[in-house]
Amino acid sequence: MAATRRPGLTRRQRENRAGLAYLSPTLIVVLVVVVLPVLWTVMLAFQRIRLINLRRAGVFGQYTLANVELVLTSPGFWSSLWITIVYTVGATLGSIAIGLVAALALRGRFPGRTFVRASVLLPYVAPVVAVTFVWEILLSPQFGLANNWGTRFLGWDRPIAFLSQRQHEVSLLGWHFDIPLALLTVIAFEAWRYFPFAFLFLLARLQAVPAELEEAARVDGAAPTQIFRHILLPQLGPVIALLTVLRFIMTFNKFDDVYLLTGGGAGTEVVSVRVFNFLTARFDIGAASAQALILALGLVVLLVIYLRYLAPRVEGEDR
């Protein structure tokens, strides 16, 4: 045993070396594929670079604020940012609300619970390309099931183009107003796809709530809504806060879902889709980088605001 230990090193130093050695493959991959590219994005964002003159791009290129200026003043940027925020907030709240209802409903025992719990997770684990196509086909104005049944059973005058119509007029109690239809559809999709994520977290937390607590309240004659409000909700608070942060970040950065459903059309162009379009349609790498950077900065700012003012509980939670 002593032979394997090199002389001259304390136990502490050996542990230090082993730790770094064990972690080194991970660190190298993350450094090369994530950290360096991100730093490079920052550089690219301040240079005039298109795919054609990429070879000339280097650390000592000419730095300029032109990209940032171009992005901030380009038509559609601010509306795109606003759309991203609406989309993110809507999808985050939607997925957590549905996840909470699902967790409460599937908490107790019932025949077939294992099967139901597993199938509820399907939207989350299924490939995004496949599920977006099914939604597209279900909602299609020509041969979609939703429109077919809507016109047949719900008395719609004509098919509704859920994914390609920017505004849709609805009348409610004599009031007429427009709703951003495609955006709402995309939000609904996102809530559908990610409620299982919230469901998993919330169910795990619900099962850790001591049964005696609820039992005692029930014996005292508390109604289920009172038990929820005064016993379960306080226990779930930190998890809900954490979920809000996680889902917010994930949705804010989301690309594939919107890209596959609408391609960014009909008032659904979120910033990540815009970045992609800058990159592939215009090959304007500098402008795309600047835009991506603004996305990341926006995210950081919103998070700081959230953590600072809205969710003091989270800080204690994940330390």
Partner: peptide, 13 residues
């Protein structure tokens, strides 16, 4: 938590 679209540009290049 990083936006993968931000990573996409430099990795593409």
């Amino acid at each position: 938590l990083f936006p993968s679209i931000l990573l996409a540009i430099p990795l593409f290049v």
